[in-house]
Simulated assay, not measured.
Amino acid sequence: MKKGDVICPECSAGFRRLQLDSRRGTPGAFRCPLCDHVLEMLDGTAEVAYRLTVAPEKLFE
């Protein structure tokens, strides 16, 4: 399993990214659920999951 952090360049939301190479995933794109910016194109070779960890400041204004 690989772990990492990703920050959306559009809205600055922070995500935890988990990749499990032992399972096949679904090809497609992962988009930021807050601003719809494409964060990663997925080819389906591994299972990838994202979890929002830091909401952008503009949500609290």
Rank of each mutant, 00 (worst) to 15 (best):
M1H: 12
M1Q: 10
M1I: 09
K2Q: 14
K2P: 01
K3S: 13
G4E: 02
G4L: 02
G4D: 03
G4Y: 01
D5T: 09
D5F: 13
V6F: 10
I7A: 07
I7H: 04
I7E: 08
P9F: 10
P9V: 08
P9I: 08
P9G: 09
P9M: 06
P9A: 08
E10L: 14
E10W: 10
E10M: 12
E10Y: 13
E10C: 14
E10S: 15
C11Q: 02
C11T: 04
C11K: 01
C11D: 04
S12Q: 14
G14N: 08
G14I: 09
F15Y: 15
F15V: 01
R16T: 14
R16E: 15
R16L: 11
R16W: 05
L18V: 06
Q19P: 00
Q19H: 02
L20G: 02
S22N: 10
S22Q: 13
R23I: 07
R23L: 15
R24P: 02
R24M: 09
G25D: 03
G25V: 01
T26D: 06
T26K: 12
P27D: 05
G28S: 06
A29M: 10
A29S: 13
A29F: 11
F30P: 02
R31P: 02
C32M: 05
C32N: 05
L34E: 02
C35A: 08
C35E: 06
C35R: 09
D36Y: 12
D36H: 14
D36W: 12
H37D: 09
H37M: 12
H37C: 11
H37S: 11
V38C: 08
V38H: 04
L39C: 06
E40R: 03
M41T: 11
M41G: 09
M41A: 13
L42M: 10
L42Y: 02
L42I: 14
L42W: 02
L42A: 02
L42F: 03
L42V: 11
D43C: 04
D43F: 03
D43Y: 03
D43G: 04
D43Q: 06
D43L: 07
G44K: 01
T45M: 03
T45F: 01
A46Q: 10
A46D: 05
E47A: 11
V48A: 00
V48L: 00
V48W: 00
A49V: 05
A49G: 09
Y50K: 02
Y50T: 02
Y50P: 00
R51G: 06
R51H: 12
R51C: 07
L52Q: 04
L52F: 04
L52S: 05
L52D: 04
L52N: 04
T53W: 03
T53R: 15
T53D: 09
V54N: 07
A55Q: 10
A55R: 12
A55Y: 12
A55E: 10
A55P: 00
P56Q: 07
P56V: 08
P56H: 08
E57S: 12
E57R: 14
K58S: 10
K58N: 11
K58I: 09
L59E: 11
L59G: 04
L59I: 09
L59P: 00
F60A: 13
E61D: 09
E61Y: 05
E61I: 09
